[in-house]
Design a protein around this nucleic acid. Structure first.
Lengths: 201, 201
DNA sequence: CACGTTATGAGACAAGTGTCCAACAAGAGG
DNA sequence: CCTCTTGTTGGACACTTGTCTCATAACGTG
């Protein structure tokens, strides 16, 4: 039987990215149970043999997908923090606007993130990536809070960052789980109420 | 080949509960991917043929496990709310003490909950259970907040309940993901700071 | 004790999975 | 035009999974 190529030959990095994207889509649509090496390749439109040509094994692919997702999200935040330096409150607002945008807050995203959470207890390499992501996010948040004008009636900045981080996670989770129960506008409103009350001093 | 029983015959309800517990343990230890019907039975010490005798299929078992977990957690909260009626602030504290107890906040619990979250986007029956759980938890929280003496400088009770619910989820998630980064004492401290600042008026 | 009910075990089966591998095709460089 | 590297395919293999079926043991009831 001839091995005719169904899909054109591509640059290594392109194909790698395609597989990472397919993994992401797979996790979102089918959950961790449906995310098999073969299904990922099916989704990417390549034969299942190709996976091992780019990744040592299927587990390694998952790890890199996680790392990529985290990096992309942090980069988006970083960019928001870099621009509009003169408007610190606006920066915080834009943080949350991004977080609750269609791109970042969807049942698909929830599916993918939750999938990684389930892997953390069982896989040290994945736990490490998650640890690094959380640390960097916390730093970013702390940096953003430090640009706000101090509020005499406020609280310790470290406390504010930790609480705000928790509210971020919680509201995001709630919104993704049921956008009808908690609408985007309400989520943003709740965030603003919280920030105003726990502003750093 | 004779079919000698490795495990004694049991009352139907007992065996059912054993299978539900095994499912829970499986989700926690092995994640959704490792939680197969056969593995559950292996864990419970029964043959794999028995699963279909108690549950229509493997998916149904997952659903019932989710429902059981949610019910048990809400019952625990309800009980805390029923006792010590004279001490509303203490009730709130005990809410969070339970939430961050070893029984409820562990990487095992996180594994199990996250597993269900991954299933929600793909399965309507599981989504329904989650929806019901969230609604009842919110009601419970709102009821607990209503027993607090009104704070003139506070916020709408509905807002307070929503924010506190988000903080609950967020802190719990953070703590389960990394108990060393966010210790139990610090999580409880952060909760208290938050509640004091967003008390209902 | 006999008998019917049912909880339990164990095998058969098709389908799906991860890994490995040999062949082929598509370019790059001489 | 030939050759060498490498992206790509598709099949082979052993293994696991879910479902079904049947034999068998345990128990309740008469």
């Amino acid at each position: 039987m001839t091995a005719r190529p169904a899909s054109k030959r591509q640059q290594p990095e392109e194909r790698r990215k395609e597989l990472l994207d397919a993994t992401m889509a797979c996790l979102a649509r089918l959950g961790p149970r449906g995310t098999t090496g073969r299904e990922i390749c099916r989704q990417a439109g390549v034969s299942h043999g190709l996976l091992r040509h780019y990744f040592d094994n299927a587990d390694n692919l998952l790890l890199e997908t996680y790392r990529t997702m985290g990096d992309e999200f942090l980069a988006r935040f970083e960019q928001e923090l870099a621009t509009h330096r003169a408007d610190p409150w606006g920066t915080m607002d834009r943080f949350f606007a991004v977080l609750f945008s269609e791109e970042w807050a969807s049942s698909d995203m929830l599916g993918a993130w939750a999938a990684f959470w389930t892997l953390i207890p069982n896989r040290d390499d994945i736990a490490e990536v998650g640890e690094s992501y959380n640390r960097r996010l916390r730093e970013l948040l702390d940096r953003a809070l430090s640009t706000l004008p101090p509020d005499p009636g406020g609280i310790e900045r470290g406390d504010a960052a930790a609480i705000l981080s928790a509210v971020m996670d919680g509201l995001w989770l709630d919104y993704c789980l049921s956008p009808t129960r908690l609408t985007r506008e309400r989520a943003l409103e709740l965030y603003r109420i919280t920030l105003r009350r726990i502003a750093p001093r």
